[in-house]
Design a protein around this nucleic acid. Structure first.
Lengths: 134, 134
DNA sequence: ACTTGACCTGGAGCGCACTCCAGCTTCTAC
DNA sequence: GTAGAAGCTGGAGTGCGCTCCAGGTCAAGT
């Protein structure tokens, strides 16, 4: 089973242009072509694409994804380095989540402040207005 | 107490250039100037800067931070809209955290796979090599 | 035969968020 | 009074990750 580029785009969540772009920068191997010279993506291609989108979602720069892709071609010998990249990325993700949680605290604090302000307004006791507008 | 731009940069974690840039695009109000025409940031300026960095960290686009900054000048009347922006951003952050957690699962799965591969190698039973190199 | 639509290529363009630069002024320390 | 550090301005440049475009090919339907 193979997929035309539009279908591969649909299934991977990437755009057609992005698929071609990823190929150009060697994030993905050039897929097979059909008789008319059109790209024909395999399920295997799709699995790799989906994994790439996961790495992208973690914020991994394309440069590093390229390295990972390159290492993959070197087979088992590069497994150590590949694992290292993933472990490093996991650390980044954990850090990022922690960072976001900390920002979430700030947002929640501010929002609570606005809500208190709203309640005060209803009670005609606008004591927190200055605070909320800061 | 006021701070020269270098000190403000240090305390906010932004670069000097970024501080001037934020001023130019009206994310921050032009700070007071000292007798020599140099920027003199107040503690209040710093508080706002730090809050801005929090919003940036959540991934809020500068365009929206600008809107928030603009609304601030309109005082209490804009509190509802400001709260709305923060609530929306909180939703985004929660979504982003969920997304990152899902990617984390993938990373953990892959890493576990590599580790299993390493153990297999030690035991001279390399059955998972193909899987890990995928 | 011909239109239509999906796909092809190489290359240019874009939006974002900075970051850097040249050339100038101003304060501080010696 | 002079050197050096820090700051100023307006504007250009950068890196990233796409995204769009012109001009062409190919295959299927009518």
């Amino acid at each position: 089973m193979t997929y035309a580029i539009a279908e591969a785009a649909h299934r991977s969540g990437l755009s057609i242009d992005t698929l071609r772009y990823y190929e150009r920068i060697q994030l993905i191997d050039p897929p097979a072509r059909d008789s008319g010279g059109r790209r024909a993506y395999t399920d295997e291609d799709l699995v790799w694409l989906v994994f790439l989108t996961k790495l992208r979602t973690t914020g991994m720069p394309i440069r590093m994804m390229r390295e990972y892709a390159r290492l993959r071609h070197q087979g088992v010998a590069s497994a150590g380095r590949r694992k290292q990249i993933l472990v490093q990325q996991r650390t980044e993700v954990l850090g990022r989540i922690a960072e976001l949680n900390s920002c979430l605290d700030v947002l929640n604090y501010k929002i609570a402040n606005y809500e208190q302000c709203e309640r005060d307004l209803e009670e005609q006791a606008p004591g927190r207005l200055a605070e909320a507008s800061a």
